[in-house]
């Protein structure tokens, strides 16, 4: 099972990655992520707000079946954020290897 602290860090990038595939709304983001990583509605909300605050996504409302729906769209800064996460991956792998080797000593 994924460590909650690590999961927390991954979720932001996961949300951005969903939006990288195209703009989306809250419920669909949760559904799109479901096969990969579990995210509850109340976890997603602060993440969306944080990402918006950091300029990684923009929000606009569209009418849908007589009500308003918020649509989230990734920004350049958001795309860069994914990039820097992926860039950090080799370092993360090194750490992983270090921990794994310690187990087999």
């Amino acid at each position: 099972m994924l460590d909650p602290q690590i999961k927390k860090g991954l979720l932001e990038v996961c949300v951005l990655s969903v939006l990288r595939r195209g703009e989306s709304h809250g419920y669909r983001i949760i559904k799109d992520l479901a096969p990969v990583i579990q995210i509850s509605e109340s976890t997603l909300y602060p993440i969306l707000r944080r990402l918006e605050g950091a300029g990684c996504l923009t929000v606009h409302s569209v009418e849908h079946n007589g009500r308003l729906r918020k649509i989230y769209r990734i920004t350049e800064a958001g795309i860069e954020q994914i990039g820097s996460f992926l860039d950090g991956w080799p370092e993360l792998l090194q750490i992983y290897e270090f921990i794994r080797k310690g187990e087999t000593l």
Binding site: G26, S40, S42, R69, K70
Partner: peptide
């Protein structure tokens, strides 16, 4: 508004209001 939208989305998929609310935490 965020939670209202989620519930509306779920009911649009065929869940009842009660079921939708129950799905939330």
């Amino acid at each position: 508004a965020y939670y209202r939208e989620l519930i509306d989305d779920m009911t649009e998929e065929g869940l009842s209001e009660q079921e939708a609310v129950a799905r939330l935490e």
